[in-house]
Write a protein that binds this DNA or RNA. Structure first.
Lengths: 152, 152
DNA sequence: CTGAAATGGTTGTTTATGCAACCATTTAGT
DNA sequence: ACTAAATGGTTGCATAAACAACCATTTCAG
């Protein structure tokens, strides 16, 4: 049985969306089958916190490219799972800082192994230079779409 | 104010996910502000049906890379919006064929204009060859993740 | 200082998504 | 033919996402 014969002129949007979903699904499966109760969306937030612990929800929204409401509820879930906790900012009572728990910090190495595995599965047979180009294009596209619209 | 200084070594998964979300959001905004009550996920299904009207839900799941349950509910929504309707297959009573309504068929040209617009916003400043490479990489990645479930 | 605007988070609502479990209908195995 | 397995769809459940409306707290204008 042949694949979709129309794939050749698929639009960029479809292609990016499909690849994103495929990667997210595989990553979730790999997390889950390795016994980690973490979703890839939560991982995106953790990723940010591993680089800089203690960010406001607004900052997290910015660097994950998510709406602030998504962050609110993502943090709710992560808090329930004891990965992070909220601390009010003493300087500005509107803000809350998100900090990793010990569990959240420790998870890093373990999850990284699954991420590596997933990336290897995904990137198999892709030339390094092409991968570089692909990343650059996607970063540029993201910038095009986020700087023009939501720059407070 | 500098951007995230760690961006350089952001993982491919994050980059793809962020770009996908950025594009989906922009597309939804463009659909909405042009007055169309259609989401980009529904568009993905429509896109498939415009190419080949009358597909089973399983087929649609395959070519949109979504779970069959997602398709079930996506179709529910699209049916409510009178974009498609279900017809039982007489050959095999398990299957249902999804067909475009007149409205679903007519929408094509209108939506295409918004899609074009969105793509132009997204691809601004990206060299054509690089875009080509990017698409090819993403298609390959998707194939890696959906065909060979096992690492070899 | 005081009221208005901006800012950071939360809540309500709608849509989307995947997994597991299930049902109904083929299709196979014997 | 008749049970067992595979297949296509649906439902229950939990997570995720964005928009609008809202609240509390700055910040700004006068």
């Amino acid at each position: 049985m042949k694949k979709n014969p129309h794939n050749l002129e698929e639009s960029f949007g479809s292609i990016v969306g499909r690849a994103g979903r495929a990667m997210a699904n595989r990553l979730n499966q790999n997390f889950s089958s390795a016994g980690y109760d973490v979703t890839c969306e939560q991982w995106a937030v953790l990723n940010s916190l591993w680089k800089k612990n203690g960010q406001s929800q607004k900052e997290l929204a910015g660097c994950t490219c998510k709406d602030k409401t998504s962050i609110t509820r993502l943090i709710d879930g992560m808090q329930k799972r004891k990965l992070v906790f909220r601390t009010p900012d003493r300087e500005d009572a509107r803000q809350k800082f998100i900090l990793l728990t010990g569990k959240g910090r420790t998870l890093r190495q373990k999850l990284l192994r699954q991420i590596e595995k997933t990336l290897q599965e995904a990137q198999k047979g892709v030339r390094t230079g092409d991968l570089r180009t692909c990343k650059d294009v996607l970063v540029r596209v993201t910038k095009n779409l986020t700087e023009g619209s939501r720059a407070d």
